[in-house]
Write a protein that binds this DNA or RNA. Structure first.
Lengths: 237, 237
DNA sequence: TAATAATATTGTATATAATACATTAACTAT
DNA sequence: ATAGTTAATGTATTATATACAATATTATTA
């Protein structure tokens, strides 16, 4: 099946390393004629002619990062007529897609994943890597990808207000309450009170205390907890 | 400028008549060959080649309903490969657009407006009209427009949680608290306590009591209120 | 003009959730 | 043993949400 050269998908995948929110970017190397660039872009590509948007998003993510079975949400479409006007973007598209490219409307998807998931090298693409969002906001990304990332983050903030579960997608299976708090405060860019946060979390039934502590830290080890997905789902109904 | 035959806009415009939530639909008449249909569709059309998505949404809404300066939000894109497979949809598109149509991805926009706004007859289109959403859910609309309306309503519900202002877009400039409550309960499909609702609303500073009452009702007339948009905006910051 | 019908308006007590605030406990490294 | 580092915890106060029913106002009708 062939590509639909008018519609693409871009995936904004967030992770959390314990300190900072990060986003997955592919490296883009252009070495042609007098052009010689090396910059970054979101994992994204054209949809196929016979492909549903959600399926396209899964496929594209899998092809460019090796990630499979990731829950993604469509959050916004971007279609400025001039969003593809930088010569290096045009050159790169024509080389990569082997197509004369006109206007492309791209559909943004977001995902939140655990940062230790394996990102696989694909045959013909440079591996995707994690970059801190602060760092990224200073880079000059391909196309309108800076704007897309910003918009994706805003979307996630809004989502979290209604759905705590999303936080847990970013944390390891076992986590301490202060990790959870750091993540929460990072995303909302504020500082919550330690005691009140702890209290609130201890009231939530689907956050389960384990009989385990952190290992290898050079101070008092924190208790670990896990998130009970099944219980969470039950309680939402 | 010419149409981009790959991407369209569909507008889901909600109104409230005091009892029911309504949505604007255009009538679609097909009288060709052996085909003879008369059904309904959302106001929607292809984007132009040089046109931003938001601008396209404004233009399309204006062309099909006469409505101008309406605040619209993009809420979701729809792109099932087979979303245009019904023969009458294909026939209608080819007649109307005068183009061979392949796959079209459509971008959904929502708006909330006061139901007494003037809907103008356009030259070559039948006038858009209001239909109750319950009624609409039993109709068989063009394309995937049933799905788009449903999705738009869900979007609005989510939005309202964070942004009360949206309710006021649907109400007349002067309204009673019980109108406001009826609207609220209609959208959320529940029944709030009269006293608690009244109390809550009277604490909100940007809901201003007027020295006016309802006219021409055959029972005790309710006090009227207005929404102070400026104050609301100030308080959000 | 008195009675009726219809909707508007209002308060209090109780439960739940949000906030402000500082000390002690546990473990590691020296 | 001591110093350094982060974890863990409780109480009082305020704000918000909920449950619940009687009276007021106006138009219509008898």
């Amino acid at each position: 099946m062939s590509f639909n050269p008018h519609v693409s998908i871009d995936c904004v995948v967030f992770g959390f390393d314990g300190e900072n929110l990060k986003v997955l970017l592919n490296e883009r190397v252009i070495a042609e004629q007098n052009q010689n660039y090396n910059d970054k872009k979101l994992p994204g590509s054209l949809i196929l002619d016979n492909e549903d948007l959600d399926s396209a998003a899964s496929r594209v993510l899998s092809e460019l990062t090796g990630l499979k079975n990731i829950y993604m949400s469509q959050f916004h479409s971007f279609g400025k007529p001039d969003r593809i006007n930088n010569p290096r973007d045009i050159l790169w598209l024509e080389k990569t897609m082997n197509l004369k490219i006109g206007r492309i409307v791209t559909i943004g998807y977001v995902a939140l994943i655990k940062i230790d998931r394996k990102i696989q090298q694909q045959s013909d693409v440079t591996t995707a890597k994690w970059y801190g969002i602060d760092e990224v906001s200073k880079m000059n990304l391909a196309f309108d990808h800076n704007e897309i990332i910003h918009s994706g983050l805003e979307y996630i903030r809004g989502k979290l207000d209604n759905d705590m579960q999303l936080l847990f997608e970013l944390l390891p299976g076992k986590f301490s309450i202060s990790q959870l708090r750091t993540l929460h405060d990072t995303i909302y860019n504020k500082q919550s009170d330690v005691r009140n946060f702890q209290k609130k979390m201890s009231q939530i039934q689907y956050i389960i205390a384990l009989d385990e502590k952190q290992q290898g830290v050079k101070h008092r080890a924190a208790r670990l907890y896990k998130f009970d997905k099944m219980l969470y789902k039950k309680m939402k109904n």
